[in-house]
Nucleic acid binder design. Structure first.
Length: 894
RNA sequence: GGGCGAUUAGCUCAGCUGGUUAGAGCGCUGGUCUCACAUACCAGAGGUCGGGGGUUCGAGCCCCUCAUCGCCCACCA
């Protein structure tokens, strides 16, 4: 068996093949049973896999595999998002290389071009996801532009339109002058920038003076249609109702009074540009002031401004306006000013607030039940604090601008009647060719819907809704949603709203928001910064298991994952080494498990009797039980790093370092009980592999399949989850074996201290052993001798040979350990070592005596705590006494 | 401008409701190619738990405050 397994694990020879095998066996399709559903956040169809995906997908796969093994009908549903702006941008960039724009192609040809691109590259991200081992049900893969999902979009749009939840109107929206489309509030990301605040004087029309306004965007001056002041502002009261000349133009504009003006800010006088500022728009509306749009869609100055400004970029125009005002002596002051400015979340261009006709979803009615779901506890967030963010957003919700001036996406299903007398506006589930009211000719709205309008529906649209579908009945509502906090509002909140509105049920009950993958400077990994780590490189170099172990194991709930792109080795070697360790544990065990292995429990004749178990067997079984309980609890509560840690420690520090080493003589027939050891080892290894499988699916499957007695068709991915067995919990075994470990450790330390040759066996005298040490020696003497490399272990009486020059250690319970090393021992050094140890204990004792002498402590602290502290004091004094005795015998001075 | 989180070993992080001598991985030092594994084994060094104050018999953990970093929200032009 060993011959067929090389000493180093090579994931590349295993993972792809194994993944294929899982798929062929249909193991990722939900079986019978109680459903457990996770909707994968659909990656953009043009996306390339990055570490953020790695983290996100890793977590989901752990959860879905865990529940699958627990017998749930686990469905992890994958798909891709058509990603309106992002995809259109990608294809437009490709066109630009050919010197073309989308307008050169025209809409139908451009859309066809995007489809061609998507058909060609759309599967890339899905294939990349597979290389991570993601156990999705690929048979159900969707794309948000699929017919069924498009039907869902229209169904929801028309329903909401009919319910008056969707409306069209002229409002100030966020406009990206590069993407040439409106953006929602969420898509316009506020960023603090260092700008300037300018104070300009506007002369009164009658020449009797000036009024000074403050602005951060001088170029919008050209679109001013008024100046507003607070009605109670004494400085300006007498100016209300009068008119000022708008500099650089020949227009005069009124001074109005409005409560929305903040007297404290700036000069207390606001210039009103209703077409380019939401507040100005509101104020202007109240006072019947016109709005003048002074910019083109590209944010160049439009024909509505004086000719010399026309065509200038807005920032050029800003300089020009300031310069001209300066020349006119109308600039009072320019001060630095830090403020938040909206940026396009796709291209980071500074967003221009702009007045235009757009479609909106009325959010308040949808938000109400969504907030209620959270407040009643039906919807939970992990970590909890994310819930308050969600609630605050719901409470302050604003209407959602859903129209986008793009060509790629779901076209708004609204048709306008062209008959002059009718002019009906009709929303329809099916394409219209004539007006339903007057049968006149119609044309469809030019805009498409925000991508998130369709992705908010995937929890049910991907299951077949609005058609009647068995999947929908079975898998809606789902359970856990795992995503990055960035899209809490974009996506998560809206899924909740649309789910509650259309399905009358929450799409999921728990939202797990994980952290962000960052570099060592805590910067988000991104292409533009060049600080990314390509997960595919990691998979190729270290294996998917290593990648998964790294991101899962280094991840406390809700915290960021910091990785160093310049040093993959330090990040991923732990996972790779762990896989390799497992591989070699497997090689060792499997080569020793040939032939029948006795069952550990059950009615079979050959079943191992409890009385046959050695101390070390009972110990590893107890540790295994502890690990089952810890890991299961951790998985259940999303503490995946705790699960990973508990399993790692069990496998490496307990099973490999101690148990396997301890049973070697039994396996080799040098000691009795080999068949029991094999039975125990097989059992705990099996259990641990199953516990680890959600995190490291490939290596665990590879090894698990090789355990003798497995049917070749069995897969660990659907093996039953290990059950806790209280009978295996054996505190006595844990204590006694713990004493054994301490004893062995003490001898090893002495050996290292004195540079004893590793091959050289030493004698050891143990005097005044504590109960546990005695029990351990009684039960496991040959094992101790082996692990500590002893030629003999004698229970001495504290006199005679063992008292002569040797190296000494004192265990916690006062057991004295003496290793006679003859000439090797440097007496001075030994005395110093013992003294240092005694001094350390003296300090502890000092503190402890003080603590126990404190009346307050003794009377107020719980009795069991006090007793524990007393025990400690006794123990330490004991150790000190033994140390003193040793030092006396060695003739130490000082 | 509001709200929230973080600050523990050189690095990345654990440390659950306050009560063992504060832990892990990597890195570092010393020793080993011991018949599963040098991607390993054994031993070890390294921390006044960001500063200050407080509550308590007892604080890494609770409270206040300061500092630094980060996140979310926000129509003060």
């Amino acid at each position: 068996m060993t011959d067929s397994l090389p000493p180093q694990y090579d994931p590349s020879t295993v993972e792809a093949k194994l993944y294929r095998w899982w798929l062929d066996r249909g193991l990722f399709r939900p079986g019978p049973g109680e459903p457990y559903v996770i909707m994968m956040p659909p990656p953009n169809v043009t996306a390339q896999l990055h570490m953020g995906h790695g983290l996100n997908l890793g977590i989901q796969d752990v959860l879905i595999r865990f529940e699958r093994m627990r017998g749930r009908a686990a469905l992890w549903l994958p798909g891709t998002d058509h990603a309106g702006i992002a995809t259109q941008n990608v294809v437009e960039k490709l066109l630009a290389k050919e010197g073309l724009t989308r307008f050169d192609l025209g809409r139908p040809a451009f859309v066809e071009r995007v489809w061609a691109y998507v058909r060609e590259t759309g599967d890339t991200i899905l294939e990349q996801i597979k290389s991570l081992g993601a156990s999705c049900d690929w048979d159900r893969t969707y794309f948000t532009l699929d017919q069924g999902l498009s039907d869902a979009v229209r169904e929801v749009f028309v329903r909401w339109y009919e319910k008056k939840l969707i409306y069209r109107g002229k409002y100030i929206i966020n406009w990206c002058p590069r993407c040439l489309t409106a953006l929602s509030n969420e898509e316009a990301e506020k960023e603090e920038v260092d700008g300037k605040i300018y104070r300009f004087r506007y002369p009164l029309e009658d020449g009797s003076g000036t009024i000074t306004i403050a602005t951060t965007r001088p170029e919008t001056l050209l679109g001013d249609t008024g100046v507003a002041v607070h009605p109670k502002d004494k400085r300006y009261r007498k100016l209300i109702g009068r008119r000022v000349m708008l500099p650089l133009t020949d227009r005069s504009i009124p001074v109005v009074a409005d409560l929305a003006v903040d007297r404290e800010f700036g000069t207390g006088a606001v210039k009103l540009t209703p077409a380019h500022d939401p507040l100005d728009f509101e104020i202007a509306a109240r006072h019947g002031l016109a709005a003048i749009d002074v910019m083109t869609p590209e944010a160049r100055m439009a024909e509505t401004v004086p000719e010399r400004f026309q065509g200038l970029d807005r920032f050029e125009a800003r300089k020009r306006v300031v310069a001209e005002l300066e020349a006119l002596g109308l600039v009072e002051r320019i001060d630095p000013h830090r403020h938040a400015v909206g940026h396009c979340y796709r291209c980071e261009t500074v967003v221009e607030p702009r007045l235009s006709d757009q479609w909106f979803v009325k959010m308040a009615p949808l938000a109400k039940p969504s907030l209620e779901a959270y407040e009643s506890g039906r919807l939970k967030f992990i970590p909890e604090r994310r819930g308050t963010e969600y609630a605050r957003w719901m409470e302050n919700i604003r209407d959602w601008c859903i129209s986008r001036q793009l060509w790629w996406g779901h076209r708004i299903p609204v048709w306008y009647c062209e008959a002059p007398r009718c002019g009906a506006v009709s929303a329809s589930r099916t394409d219209l060719t004539r007006c339903p009211k007057c049968t006149g000719p119609v044309h469809q709205d030019e805009d498409v819907l925000d991508t998130w309008f369709s992705s908010q529906l995937v929890p049910f649209s991907s299951l077949g809704w609005p058609a009647r579908a068995a999947d929908l009945d079975r898998f809606y509502p789902g359970h856990t949603l795992v995503t990055a906090p960035e899209i809490l509002f974009f996506w998560v909140a809206r899924m909740v709203m649309s789910g509650l509105e259309t399905q009358k049920a929450l799409p999921f009950t728990t939202v797990y928001l994980h952290g962000t993958v960052r570099d060592t400077l805590h910067r988000k990994m991104s292409k533009s910064l060049g600080n990314g780590i390509d997960p595919l490189d990691v998979v190729a170099q270290y294996g998917a298991d290593a990648l998964r172990y790294t991101v899962i194991g280094g991840l406390a709930v809700g915290t960021d994952v910091i990785l160093d792109p310049a040093d993959l080795e330090s990040s991923f070697s732990t996972g790779r080494n762990f896989a390799n360790k497992l591989w070699n544990m497997g090689r060792f065990l499997l080569s020793n498990l040939e032939g029948p292995v006795r069952p550990l429990a059950g009615k079979a004749e050959s079943a191992v009797e409890k009385s046959e178990l050695a101390l070390v067997d009972r110990w590893i079984l107890a540790r295994c039980e502890t690990t089952v309980v810890e890991a299961t609890d951790a998985y259940e509560n999303f503490r995946l790093n705790d699960a990973a840690g508990a399993i790692y420690r069990f496998l490496w520090n307990d099973l490999a370092d101690w148990y396997l080493e301890a049973i070697k003589p039994r396996l080799y027939g040098e000691q009795a009980g080999g068949d029991v050891a094999r039975a125990v080892a097989a059992q705990v290894f099996d259990v641990a592999l199953r516990l680890l499988h959600p995190i490291m699916p490939f290596i665990t499957e590879t090894l698990w399949k090789r355990i003798p007695g497995r049917h070749p068709d069995w897969s660990i991915s659907v093996a039953p989850w290990p059950r806790s067995d209280r009978r295996a919990a054996d505190p006595c075994a844990l204590d006694e074996f713990g004493a054994l470990q301490e004893l062995v450790g003490a001898v090893r330390s002495i050996r290292a201290e004195y540079n004893v040759q590793p091959g050289h066996a030493v004698r050891v005298f143990v005097t005044e052993p504590g109960e546990k040490v005695q029990a351990a020696i009684r039960a496991m003497r040959p094992t101790i001798e082996r692990l500590a490399r002893l030629s003999a272990l004698s229970l001495g009486n504290g006199t005679g040979a063992e008292a002569e020059g040797g190296a000494h250690a004192v265990l916690q319970d006062g057991t004295a350990v003496t290793v006679p090393l003859g000439d090797l021992v440097d007496l001075g050094k030994e005395c110093a070592r013992l003294k240092a140890e005694a001094d350390r204990l003296d300090q502890l004792v000092g503190g402890q005596e003080k603590k126990l002498a404190n009346e307050q402590f003794v009377s107020r602290a719980p009795a069991d705590i006090v007793q524990k502290e007393r025990d400690k004091l006794v123990q330490w004094r004991d150790q000190i006494a033994v140390l003193a005795d040793k030092r006396g015998r060695l003739g130490c001075t000082g």
